[in-house]
Amino acid sequence: MTRISVTVDGTKYEDEVEPRLLLVHYLRDRLGLTGTPVGCDTSNCGACTVDLDGVTAKSCSVLAVQADGSEVTTVQGLAVNGEWHPLQKAFHERHALQCGYCTPGMIMAARDLLRENPAPSADDVRHALEGNLCRCTGYQNIVRAVLDAAGSTEPSAQEVAP
């Protein structure tokens, strides 16, 4: 067992973990933060995307011991005093989810994009989300939601090219 100290969504945790424990399992099974799902388990789908020290990471591809001393933000840490994050609002308003499984990862990846590029084009959004799969194929509304959250002046919903 290895001792780790991790801050997750603003709360500091100290734990003894097996080195082979994946960060996503630590978040879900140890901390009960089940807002971050396990999707494909092959690094492809991006459902488990979290923010690790200021940039996105796929939490199925990080060992919990690698996050020692780090700061993790999950989708559950985005709302402030019960007030949804603009991306959460936009996903709600634009109906940017069908089954919802990919949504936490989509939101975390979109948040990463908007930090680097506050006014992305639809194309920028699609490229930024290339590591996040929606098997309901609800991409159109996801792109619209991200553009909305960016307050972008991009073409409106109907005009976003497929």
Binding site: S43, G46, T49, L52, V55, T56, A57, K58, S61, V62, A109, D112, L113, A128, E130, G131, N132
Partner: peptide, 9 residues
């Protein structure tokens, strides 16, 4: 290479 999250790490 891969996607943004993987390129971060």
């Amino acid at each position: 290479v891969a996607d943004p999250a993987i390129r971060h790490r």
